[in-house]
Computed example of a mutant assay.
Amino acid sequence: MKTCIRDVVVAVVAVSMGVALAACGQGGGTGGYAGSGPRIGLLLPDAITSRWESKDRPLLEERIKERCGDCTIEHANANGDVAAQQRQVDSMITKGIDALVLVAVDASALNAAVRKAHDAGVPVVSYDRLAEGPISGYVSFNGQEVGRLQARALLKAMAHRADGDQIVMINGDPTDPNTLLFKDGALSVLRGHVKFGKVYDTPMWRSDIANMNMSGAIADLGAGNIDGVYSANDALASGVISALRANKISPLPPVTGQDADLGAVRRIVGGEQYMTVWKPNDAEASAGAAMAVAAARGENLHRIATGTVRTRSGDVVPAVLLTPVSVTVGTIKDTLLKGGVYTVQQICTPLLRTACDKAGLTG
Rank of each mutant, 00 (worst) to 15 (best):
M1H: 14
T3Q: 14
A11Y: 09
A14S: 12
M17G: 10
M17N: 14
G25W: 15
G35T: 07
R39T: 14
G41K: 09
L42W: 08
L43A: 01
P45N: 08
D56S: 14
L59E: 07
L60S: 04
L60W: 07
K65T: 13
K65R: 14
A76P: 01
N77D: 09
A84Y: 02
K95I: 03
I97W: 00
V101A: 01
L102M: 07
L110Q: 03
V114Y: 00
D119I: 06
L130K: 05
A153C: 14
L155E: 11
D163R: 08
V168H: 07
I170G: 15
I170M: 15
P174E: 05
T175S: 14
D176H: 06
P177V: 06
L180E: 08
A186I: 02
R191D: 15
K195V: 11
M204W: 13
I209M: 14
N213S: 10
A219W: 07
A219G: 00
D227Y: 03
V229A: 06
A232T: 10
N233M: 05
D234R: 06
L236H: 02
S238M: 09
G239R: 03
I241R: 00
S242F: 01
S242P: 02
A243K: 08
A243F: 06
A243R: 03
K248G: 02
I249V: 13
S250F: 07
A260Q: 05
D261F: 09
G263R: 07
R267K: 10
G270N: 13
W278Q: 10
S286I: 04
R297T: 11
E299C: 03
N300Q: 15
R303S: 12
G307M: 09
L322H: 01
V329D: 07
Y342G: 00
T343M: 02
L352C: 08
R353K: 05
T354H: 10
A359S: 08
L361K: 01
T362M: 03
G363V: 05
